[in-house]
């Protein structure tokens, strides 16, 4: 009895919706903190961070939890929407829903679908490139020496940064598995190259042809996210039974601030890159 109640009932679906939703709110904060380095930090630090995020086992675990949460949140949402549609087979001829409820609260499914579309395109543009693109560039630094400019890969070896020349032919080094530097003779891995996520992100939003449209679409997606959060954040607490006049003001106030500030900060980044960054 109790087992089926916690998995299949209408209320169980709400609990899962709320829990995955709140977890994804935490993910947003982490993701935002990382992204803000695109404005407030340099390419090297950002790429180091990107490497950490794709290799650290704890972060990996969290990222799998995030993928599962997104999928579960979407599937649960679709199931709820289908059930809710079935609950009213004949619609009203005349409806006046704005008299008793907020627009965002009535359009969570539409907003959520748009966010899912955004997540998929976003992952194709950045996540998939970072993980699977054979041609993903490694980070290079330019050094002027005796009137000549040299390109170097920034690499990491036992915690220390090293600079290895691009002229691999004569360096006695070769790159394997896209980012690993090997000593040709000793067959030893001596360094790890940073994938230049910073470069492809800037190139994406500064692209002469598509940069502006990408920026605009990104900002629109953040508006959609904002409306989704505007209802979703406080709603998750209600679904989990956290409704107490003592704290409701705090939850609703924090939820409103969260749903405005987080998407706003996300949206500022591509605007900064497209219009203001060098």
């Amino acid at each position: 009895m109790a087992k089926s109640a916690i998995l299949k009932s209408s209320l169980a679906k709400k609990y899962w919706m709320a829990l995955t939703g709140l977890f994804l709110c935490l993910f947003l904060v982490g993701h935002l903190a990382g992204n803000l380095q695109l404005i407030f930090s340099d390419a090297s630090h950002f790429n180091q961070y990107a490497l950490f995020m794709t290799t650290n086992p704890a972060v990996k675990l969290l990222s799998y939890l995030t993928y599962i949460s997104i999928l579960f949140h979407a599937v649960d949402g679709i199931m709820l929407t289908v059930q809710n549609r079935k609950a009213r087979p004949i619609r009203y001829a005349m409806e006046n829903p704005s008299a008793n409820s907020a627009w965002a609260s009535r359009n969570m499914a539409v907003l959520g679908t748009l966010i899912l579309v955004f997540i998929v395109t976003h992952m194709v543009n950045f996540w998939a490139v970072m993980h699977f693109d054979e041609k993903m560039p490694l980070e290079t630094v330019q050094v002027d020496y005796e009137g000549k400019t040299y390109d170097f890969y920034v690499t990491q070896n036992t915690g220390k940064d090293k600079y290895i020349p691009v002229d691999l032919e004569n360096s006695g080094l070769e790159i394997r598995n896209r980012t690993e530097f090997y000593d040709k003779t000793g067959n030893l891995k001596i360094a790890e190259g940073y994938k230049d996520l910073h470069k492809i992100t800037f190139a994406f939003f500064k692209d002469a042809k598509y940069g502006l449209i990408a920026t605009i679409l990104y900002v629109i997606a953040m508006f959609v996210l904002s409306f989704h959060l505007l209802h979703g954040f406080a709603s998750a607490f209600q679904s989990l039974g956290a409704n107490n006049p003592k704290y409701n003001g705090l939850i609703k106030g924090f939820g409103k601030a969260f749903s405005v500030i987080v998407p706003l900060l996300f949206a500022i980044i591509p605007i900064y890159i497209h219009f203001f960054a060098k």
Partner: peptide
């Protein structure tokens, strides 16, 4: 159907039953 916390019921309830009751049930 399932509750999505729009709060319309609370507004239209002739007896002013609060959403707190849904949270308590949850």
């Amino acid at each position: 159907g399932n509750c999505t916390n729009t709060g319309a019921c609370e507004v239209e309830c002739p007896k002013g039953i609060s959403l707190e009751n849904i949270a308590r049930m949850n």
